[in-house]
Simulated scan of single mutants.
Amino acid sequence: MSFQAGDSDIRRGTLHDGRWIKPVTSYYSTSEVIQWLSCIEYETTFTEQDIASGLFPVNLHNLSVLMRLHLVTFPFENTAMHYTADHYMDVSPEGAFRRLVKERQGSYCFGQNTVFLGMLRGLGYRAYSGLARVNKIPPDSDDVDYTPLTHMVIFVQPIIDSNETFLVDVGFGGPNLAQPILLSNAETNVVLGAAPPAGHRLTRGSHPSSSLDWHLEVTRDIENPTWSIRYAFSEAEFFLPDHASASFSVSMAPGQTMFRYDVIIVKYFLMSEEESEIIEKTGIMERLVGACRVKRQVGSKSEVIMELKDEAERIRAAREIFEINIDESAAKYIEGRVPAISKHTDVKVD
């Protein structure tokens, strides 16, 4: 299918042919939706009957609230890939729900966005999932070197009587979106990221084999931006088997992404009032990043708060700082793997 819409159609924030996303029944029950809302501490109380009756207020504001609450509740992490016997990341709807909501642990993009998509549909949002190619070149560079389709994203039309479409993503880790971004390449379509003053925008570009690609770009400083592409995506819809296959490739196939080569843990926290004042009340989160060291970032300031000398220290940090429940005996499963601290070369997350 070739792209036919004019530039004005791109800027206005709809899918390329003006499509309306159809409502789809969630793979989660109303009971599981309620459990998730409780887990992320969504303030308003709804009953299962309320959810089943469509009484949840589906709108852009609530979409933003749900996104932020999800981000600060569940860490972005791949510890199951390295500290379990089968080195497997279960990103099925059942497995991801168990990992996040029941066990209060985390996952990477496929687990995070699988849960978020199912919950949005369960609440009445019109949404579908896509796949993206991540740029392996670090930020602050104009170069691109794309992975295969190894990242899950979500498209949402949050306004009941509109086909305005937003990109949503709760599973990118470091430079994560903190709010929905309109599917538009307008120059004014810029949003703050999860670690302000970082920000995001969407631009159009082309993969050599496609004319439908969008780019999510990031800058470390929204006031003095230097933009770099974080991932490229089309508007094509993908489904659970596609995500399961892509996740298996990410976790098991050498050379696809950084996840096989590092233990990645990113945890967001709501900032204190004082910290928020420092960056002119634009900030919503701080973050901690763990690999072979634990870093705390508030705004553009980052400091190392702990150097991890062995696996026992890393497991203890995962439990005490990131609230990820890894048993000390699990250290045996990472022995001989590239991310083991005895062999490790630190990988940059952001």
Rank of each mutant, 00 (worst) to 15 (best):
M1C: 10
S2I: 13
F3H: 15
Q4D: 12
A5M: 10
G6V: 08
D7C: 09
S8Y: 08
I10E: 11
R12Y: 08
H16Y: 13
G18F: 04
K22S: 14
P23D: 07
V24C: 10
Y27N: 12
Y27F: 08
I34Q: 07
L37Q: 04
L37A: 05
Y42L: 08
T44F: 06
T45F: 06
Q49A: 13
D50N: 13
G54D: 06
N59V: 03
N59L: 04
N62V: 02
L66M: 06
L66Y: 00
R68A: 08
R68L: 09
T73K: 13
F76A: 03
H82N: 07
T84C: 09
D86K: 14
D86H: 14
H87V: 01
V91D: 04
E94N: 11
G95R: 05
A96N: 05
R99E: 12
R99P: 00
S107D: 15
S107V: 02
C109M: 06
N113P: 02
M119Y: 01
L120E: 04
Y128M: 02
R133G: 02
N135L: 03
P138C: 03
D140Q: 14
S141W: 05
D142Q: 11
D143F: 09
L149N: 09
M152N: 06
V153S: 00
I154R: 00
F155L: 08
E164A: 10
T165C: 15
F166H: 13
V168M: 05
D169G: 03
P175A: 10
L177M: 09
A178D: 09
Q179S: 15
Q179G: 08
P180Q: 04
L182H: 06
N185G: 02
E187G: 06
E187Y: 06
T188H: 11
V191F: 07
G193T: 03
A194E: 01
A195V: 14
A198Q: 13
G199E: 02
G199W: 01
L202D: 00
T203H: 01
S206Y: 11
H207L: 14
S209Y: 10
D213R: 04
T219F: 00
R220S: 13
E223K: 13
N224K: 12
T226I: 12
Y231N: 00
A236D: 15
E237K: 11
F238V: 07
H243G: 11
A244F: 09
S249C: 12
M252V: 06
P254V: 03
G255W: 06
Q256A: 06
R260S: 08
D262H: 10
I265A: 14
V266M: 07
K267H: 12
Y268R: 10
F269N: 13
M271S: 11
M271I: 14
E274N: 11
S276L: 07
M285H: 13
E286C: 11
R287M: 13
L288T: 05
A291G: 09
R293N: 09
K295Q: 14
K295F: 10
S300R: 12
I305G: 05
E307K: 13
L308G: 05
R316Q: 15
R316P: 00
R319W: 07
E320K: 14
F322M: 10
E323I: 08
E323Q: 15
I324Q: 05
N325T: 13
I326L: 14
I326E: 02
D327N: 11
S329M: 10
K332F: 07
K332M: 14
K332N: 10
Y333R: 04
Y333I: 04
I334R: 00
K348R: 12
